[in-house]
Design a protein around this nucleic acid. Structure first.
Lengths: 392, 392
DNA sequence: CACAGCGCTGCAAAGGTTTGCAATGAAGTA
DNA sequence: TACTTCATTGCAAACCTTTGCAGCGCTGTG
């Protein structure tokens, strides 16, 4: 095993000496309840006492034990984030945004990766339920009915999936797919393929529906290929099939697949965009770095993460869970208002799409080229919209 | 704000009715302690009773409250993961591996993103300290002394940084840099630039040291440019500087910078690898997808994540924190064994490096081409090595 | 028969915090 | 002066679970 090199040393090390509210109370000569109030209801304690207590706390390095607090308040100040696949570059910006927003509201985030496995999703919701005040379910793969059922166990906000009766954050991929198809039709493509993603994906169905309608409206023929794994490999695997199908343009379920497809086509000697145009979805960073640069439908992932967190906290605040007085059936039948937010998507035109067989020769390019109506994660969408959305 | 569309509905919804150990006890006609034992020490309870209790628990949908358990056992079964930047594609595989390994050991993971901000790092360690059994500090930007200090508050494992007296998981970027330089020298490059990363990065110093030594040994001249932001932008920003410097090859701090640099050079009309060779570090997925495909030093990120989790748990198990009998200064001066693990890196030769000005004409390519000694995240390194390492 | 040992179970304390209620003292009002 | 009000603080229960100890009924041994 020449792979690793290990060195070991032993050292004296002070184990963590946990300092509790009691220590602070003793040090500042007050009762523990006063210390508690100093932190959680400062207006109830004499300013003089307060500063003394705070000084002692600072001095001893006291930090309230959130677990103990959670035990009695019923609120953990944690939220769970369940993700289909962290390694899919679509998700990190979402996680980052959610984590930031949560921290901003004094919440921490549990992250769990399900490897696109619906069973893991369910288990994780259960496992997290008691440790968090709510869960963000991102691009879930399980059934709607199961989601509804789980939502009775712990407050849920669903991202990238529409579940009636539950708060959802959606990206308007329908509109995105329509724009993409219109763009392709405008370029003179009449035979277009849609590379489908996972079967249980809401996004997938939505895109298919919208793409079909847009193609019909534009007088183009749409072939659906799939379902496929939403990865680069999934994309390159269908390259051969795409070539045989004879289409001149492809709309892929996401950027990863689009990039994989371009790779695959390249290996077959098919040039993009000269022979086949390719459009992706997501506008991951990567899509600006490949060659050709990818034309894609930009989804506001950061905004989605922030919005989802806000919706969860909003929902949570109006109905504090369990806690005191939980005799028999406490708060059955709470009337809860659920909002569903749809975030806009934007077509970003880059270099992977070009004129098709039916392009009008006069104007070689039917749509604006280059930077174009380019607005990836523009500043218009995020928090302002979020506020509006949740308020309604 | 035309960006979003919101719909709202109200619905009756059962709020989570928390079912506790007491409910199970009542339902199955035993004392709560028996229920507790059914879960945490099954061998102490009569098989008959056990099945009855389990049936009732299942029936009521009981799940032990980990927060309450943590309160008394002193172990939360959570670990914290502090990351410089989730959006940096280097980290997701590490997070994924760590999360998987943790879950495999019945632990959950708190993820926090610091945005490369040392202050945030410190705050987060404090905030997480009481909620987790230990923290993984990945590529920290704070000072060694602060890390040592924090390690007295909560068990720490450091990834990508060497701190004496603390368990560390390191990747041998020194060896990687050496291989890269040797590769370039072998190709006939004699004037090489090193694109530095963040100043406070251990990896950065290590690379610099090794690259300098290797260049000297190979009779090449090494120019250090930086520090730079470890991002694509950081890379493209120095393209002009690289061109002016007249070097024929560049070793970048990481793949992101390398890719950015290639972009930047391309914009200046400098072709890679014909005019300048570029080598990255990390072997992120992206590096296989750009054109030209990136020659890079592959780092075993998955293995690092798993190893770090194992080391943390190992360390934790041998010294259960605080809990019962925490009178005065309990366990001061615990003798702890700390291991430092160094994981091997591998040079992956792809298409971004080519012959330099001093290439020997006879053999146009001094090093093997194409797939070559390609072994990214190969199966040799991970868990087996991990076991060995921690055992020592 | 006395007693030890065993398998199983109940009892109650402990863990750190919050919070309703009561007690204290002082100031304000009639 | 007697009474009310208010600000401040202490008391103790409660949250849910784990765990050392003791008790129970039984069997086996001396």
């Amino acid at each position: 095993m020449g792979h690793t090199h290990v060195t070991a040393t032993t050292s004296d090390e002070g184990a963590a000496v946990p300092v509790t509210i009691r220590d602070v109370a003793r040090a500042s000569g007050v009762h523990i309840s006063t210390v508690s109030r100093t932190f959680s209801a400062p207006h109830l304690v004499n300013p003089e006492t307060r500063v003394r207590v705070l000084a002692c706390a600072e001095d001893l390095g006291y930090r309230p034990n959130r677990a103990a607090r959670a035990l009695i308040t019923g609120r953990t100040h944690n939220i769970g984030l369940i993700i289909a696949d962290i390694a899919n570059p679509f998700f990190p910006p979402l996680i980052k945004a959610a984590e930031g927003q949560a921290r901003h509201r004094d919440y921490h985030v549990f992250v769990a990766d399900t490897n696109e496995d619906p069973t893991a999703e369910e288990e994780l919701v259960h496992a997290l339920a008691k440790q968090v005040d709510g869960v963000l379910l991102c691009s879930p793969r399980m059934s709607n009915s199961l989601i509804e059922q789980l939502s009775r166990e712990v407050p849920l906000v669903v991202v990238n999936r529409q579940v009636t009766g539950l708060p959802c954050v959606l990206m308007d991929v329908g509109q995105g797919a329509r724009s993409a198809i219109e763009h392709l039709v405008g370029l003179g493509h009449r035979s277009i393929a849609l590379l489908g993603g996972p079967r249980s994906s809401w996004t997938n169905r939505e895109m298919r529906r919208a793409a079909n309608a847009a193609a019909r409206a534009g007088g183009a023929e749409l072939t659906v290929l799939g379902p496929n794994a939403p990865t680069e490999v999934g994309g390159s695997a269908v390259a051969e099939q795409v070539r045989r199908s004879g289409v001149s343009a492809v709309l892929a379920y996401n950027d990863l697949m689009a990039i994989g497809l371009i790779e695959g086509l390249d290996a077959l000697g098919v040039r993009v965009p000269q022979e086949v145009s390719v459009v992706g979805v997501d506008d991951i960073t990567l899509s600006r770095l490949t060659r050709p640069k990818l034309t894609t439908v930009a989804t506001p992932t950061g905004a989605a993460g922030r919005t989802a967190v806000d919706m969860l906290l909003q929902q949570d605040i109006e109905s504090p869970r369990g806690a005191r007085g939980s005799g028999a059936g406490t708060a059955l039948g709470v009337r809860r208002t659920t909002a569903q937010v749809m975030l806009q998507t934007d077509l970003v035109i880059r270099d992977s799409t070009g004129p098709g067989p039916y392009a009008r020769p006069a104007r070689p390019l039917a749509a604006p080229r280059g930077p174009g109506p380019h607005c990836p994660a523009g500043p218009g969408i995020p928090t302002a919209a979020t506020g509006d959305a949740v308020a309604s």
